[in-house]
């Protein structure tokens, strides 16, 4: 009993590396001819939300000033224990507000409508369908999970920062020093990070697993819409149908999953 469990855990470890758990486990039991003891299983919580590709639509018309965005940014940064540094070089941010010309460089016309040019824009990781950061990572510490989220595995990151060079959106931050003392109030339910690893928005993977919408979406009062890009019935698709949207630097072919109604 004990040894079969130990074997299960080893195999599950292998399976977690991407070999697929069932065939390995079955083959191993068949090979030893063992009577399978009751095994532990892993799975999703029943309330978990899943998608082929999670996507977000940001209705920028709903944000008139940086103050309108503050609650969204605060919601994200506080539940994810994002530290606040005075030193700009050590800065870490998952979601932040910026100007039109910074969010959409190359798309700035000289004579845009005043409100389009002056309105703040919310930027975050685009969870690209074809992410260059994932291509660059030498350890698969950043990868695209089965819901289309570009995830960081902080346990595995070696801190080479190749992903930061690869990201064309500046969405990634690096822990230049121990962040823990710079987290004003820690959320005990979510880990902090350690120095020397890269971090970024995770589309609230931990909340989706519990059936909750991402924190920024929840705090946005409907200005942010979130859903499965490949489910024709999803709210995201309805909004994309009804509105003309743009994406950041889509000419680079990364296929960002964050859309903007301007």
């Amino acid at each position: 009993m004990k040894s079969s469990r130990r074997r299960f855990l080893k195999l599950a470890g292998i399976a977690a590396l991407g070999l697929g758990s069932r065939p390995v486990v079955d083959a191993a039991y068949a090979a030893v001819g063992g009577q399978a003891a009751p095994e532990p299983k892993v799975g999703r919580q029943p309330e978990a939300l899943t998608a082929k590709q999670w996507a977000m639509v940001i209705d920028t018309r709903r944000f008139e000033s940086a103050a309108d965005m503050e609650p969204l940014i605060e919601a994200c940064h506080s539940i994810h224990n994002v530290p606040h540094f005075e030193n700009k070089r050590h800065e870490i941010k998952w979601i932040w507000e910026t100007e039109y010309k910074h969010a959409f460089p190359g798309k700035e016309n000289d004579f845009l409508p005043w409100e389009v040019k002056e309105r703040p824009y919310l930027v975050l990781c685009n969870h690209c369908e074809n992410p260059p950061c994932v291509r660059a990572c030498p350890t698969k510490a950043t990868f695209k999970n089965e819901n289309g989220i570009v995830v960081m595995d902080f346990h595995r990151c070696i801190g080479c920062r190749f992903c930061m060079a690869a990201c064309p959106f500046g969405s990634r931050s690096f822990n230049f020093r121990d962040p823990r003392p710079f987290v004003a109030e820690t959320n005990k339910k979510f880990p902090t990070r350690m120095k020397g690893v890269v971090e970024k928005c995770n589309f609230c993977a931990e909340r989706l697993a519990e059936g909750k919408m991402p924190a920024c979406v929840e705090a946005s009062d409907g200005a942010l819409v979130f859903g499965d890009l490949y489910d024709p019935q999803s709210k995201v698709r309805q909004v994309l149908n009804d509105n003309y949207t743009i994406r950041r630097k889509q000419e680079l072919g990364t296929s960002p999953a964050v859309y903007y109604i301007v």
Binding site: A12, K41, V42, G43
Partner: peptide, 18 residues
């Protein structure tokens, strides 16, 4: 170790014991 890989990499968070 299995827990952390399963949660982070496989997006599965529930563990059902024997």
């Amino acid at each position: 170790d299995v827990w952390r890989d399963t949660v982070v990499r496989d997006a599965k968070r529930a563990y059902i014991n024997p």
